[in-house]
Simulated scan of single mutants.
Amino acid sequence: MPGNAQLLLLDKDVVESLLIANDVLAAVERAFELHRLRKGRVFPLIRERLETGGVFGIKAGDVQSESLLGFKAAGFWPSNRNQGGEPHQATIMLIDPATGRPLCVIDGNAITTMRTGAAGGLGLRALARPDSRRLCLFGTGVQARIQVTFALHMMPAISSVQYVTARGTADARFESHFNDRCAISHATDADDAVATSDLIITATPGGGPLFGAAAVQPGTHINCVGADTKGKRELPEGFLERVRLFVDDEAQARQIGETQWAPDVACVELGDVLGAPEKMIRHPDDITVFDMTGLALQDLTVARMLYEQAAKSNLGARIPWPW
């Protein structure tokens, strides 16, 4: 009855306890499939800069055939670092599409991290050369770490990782996460690291081009993570015009992704490749780019998985939420 309605709250600890890599991969792949079949809708994006120095956005969507509806309110507040806090903040809400009543409120930080890592891993598996061994990474933050984690999970041939930092200094703490899984080293010359790598992942705040276009060798694949707002970029000017470009959502990528800098370049949505992998013929000299802006459907499919698991295991806090 409406008077007995409850709202389930899943905090950071519960979310992290339920986030298993293969489960997240399955949920994210399902999101790509729903998007490909146009069974899941991605609503117009909200992404705005604030006077406080932060960036606030809302990604929303639904899957009408599966009674799935919700949104993620998220953004980036760099001043949080001064308070010892995480600059990325995200909250997800699942809503009953039949009544409009909230079903579950979920801490979205770990979900965002994991689903983005999973999307990157799926992109590598679908687009990169299977024998790729050398990875070049830009960034050492939370997202950089999860991207490497999923890259190693999905691409077992990777044996070495070079990483480039904004300060130009090594990050021993970052290296410690991967020392037992691959040879990892700090690179002081970005173009040299790019030129000697099969895979490149850019996971930075998107403040400008990270390397020269000429450094990228034929056969290289690049996952771009950092461009998620108008004005952000990580790739050099004119580079997208000479690659095979893949995106998670074409309209969104042209609005806020790397693709905003090359709006007339043809692109293919990754869901189409995942749905028909036999059609992805990669020529030896192809340079491929996956422009990752993050789908609302990814947040919703992962959130639904957590909601169902938490309800089954009686996890989280339930509070009265009467009509």
Rank of each mutant, 00 (worst) to 15 (best):
G3Q: 13
N4F: 06
Q6G: 09
D13V: 12
V14M: 04
V15R: 07
S17F: 05
A21R: 14
A21W: 14
F32L: 08
L37R: 15
G40K: 01
R41K: 13
V42M: 09
V42F: 03
V42S: 11
I46N: 11
R49V: 09
V55H: 08
I58H: 05
I58D: 11
K59F: 02
D62M: 10
K72N: 14
A73F: 11
G75H: 00
N82C: 05
G84V: 05
I92P: 01
I92T: 11
I111C: 10
I111V: 15
T112K: 02
R115P: 02
G117S: 08
A118D: 03
A119T: 08
G121W: 01
L122M: 09
G123W: 01
L124T: 01
A126F: 04
A128T: 06
A128C: 12
R129H: 15
P130A: 04
P130H: 05
S132D: 12
L135P: 05
G139F: 06
V142N: 14
A144T: 09
A144Y: 14
V148C: 07
F150Q: 03
P156N: 08
A157T: 15
S160P: 07
V164D: 00
T169D: 14
F178S: 13
N179V: 11
I184C: 01
A187Q: 02
D192K: 15
A193H: 03
D198E: 09
D198P: 05
D198Q: 05
I200P: 00
I201F: 09
A203P: 06
G208H: 10
G212H: 11
G212E: 12
I222K: 00
I222C: 02
V225H: 12
R233E: 09
R244W: 04
F246D: 04
V265D: 03
C267P: 02
V273R: 01
M280T: 09
R282G: 06
L295R: 00
L295V: 03
D299C: 03
L300A: 02
S313M: 13
